[in-house]
C-alpha cells in the first residue's frame, strides 16, 4: 500500500495570474505536480516546460502503415491472389486504387494517433481519476504541488502560493 500523498492546491480563476504564478513558483525551484484547467490554457506549455507532443509523428507513422496496407491489399488481391479481367482492363493499375489508399491512410492515421493519445495520457473508460478539486472541470484553475517532491516546508509552500495571487490555498490528501 502506498503512503498517503499530500498535495497543496492553489486555486485561481484568471489565466494570466495563473501563468504568472506558475512562473513564480518555478523560479523558487518548487516542483509543480500538475496544473488543472477546465479549458486549454495557451502559453502554459512553455511556462511549465512541457515539450511539444510527439503525437503528430505517431499520426504520420500510422498513416504510412495504412498506406502500405492499402497498396498491398489492393495489388495482392487484384493482381496476385485472384486476378480477374474486369471490363477488359489490366488486372491492376494505380488510378482506381487511389481512393482506398487515401481512405485507409486517413483511417489508420486517425485511429492510431487517438489510440496513442489514450495510452499516453492513460485515459480509459474504467479509470478512477484522482480529482484534486471538483471545480477543475468547471471554472477554476488549480496548481497542485506534491509536498514530498519539494524540500520546502508546507508553511513555506502555503505562503508562496498565497503570494502568487491564489484565491484559495487548500490541502488535498489521497489515501
Amino acid at each position: 500500500m502506498e503512503a498517503n500523498k499530500n498535495y497543496i492546491l492553489g486555486v485561481y480563476s484568471d489565466d494570466d495570474i495563473l501563468i504568472k504564478a506558475v512562473k513564480m513558483i518555478r523560479a523558487h525551484n518548487v516542483q509543480i505536480h500538475e496544473v488543472f484547467s477546465p479549458y486549454p490554457l495557451h502559453g502554459i506549455d512553455d511556462v511549465l516546460g512541457i515539450k511539444r507532443s510527439r503525437l503528430p509523428k505517431a499520426a504520420f507513422a500510422f498513416g504510412v502503415l495504412g498506406f502500405i496496407f492499402a497498396v498491398f491489399l489492393q495489388f495482392w488481391t487484384m493482381g496476385v491472389d485472384w486476378p480477374m479481367i474486369i471490363g477488359g482492363k489490366n488486372y491492376t493499375s494505380i488510378p482506381p486504387f487511389i481512393p482506398i489508399m487515401f481512405e485507409l491512410t486517413v483511417l489508420l492515421s486517425a485511429l492510431g494517433m487517438v489510440g496513442t493519445f489514450f495510452i499516453a495520457s492513460d485515459l480509459k473508460p474504467y479509470k478512477k481519476p484522482k480529482i484534486f478539486d471538483p471545480r477543475i472541470t468547471d471554472d477554476k484553475l488549480v496548481i497542485a504541488i506534491d509536498i514530498a517532491d519539494n524540500s520546502l516546508s508546507k508553511e513555506d509552500l502555503n505562503s508562496l502560493i498565497k503570494e502568487t495571487g491564489a484565491e484559495e490555498v487548500n490541502d488535498k490528501i489521497f489515501e
Binding site: V35, P56, A110, T137
Partner: peptide, 30 residues
C-alpha cells in the same frame, strides 16, 4: 465511464490540442 477519467492536466491538454489539430488536418481532405 464516458469521460475516460479525464481531469484536465496541462500535459493532457497539450496532447489533446495536438490531437485535435491533426484530426482536423486529416478530416479536411476526408
Amino acid at each position: 465511464t464516458l469521460s475516460f477519467g479525464w481531469t484536465g492536466g496541462a500535459k493532457d491538454w497539450s496532447r489533446y490540442e495536438s490531437v485535435s489539430l491533426i484530426l482536423a488536418g486529416l478530416a479536411t481532405p476526408l
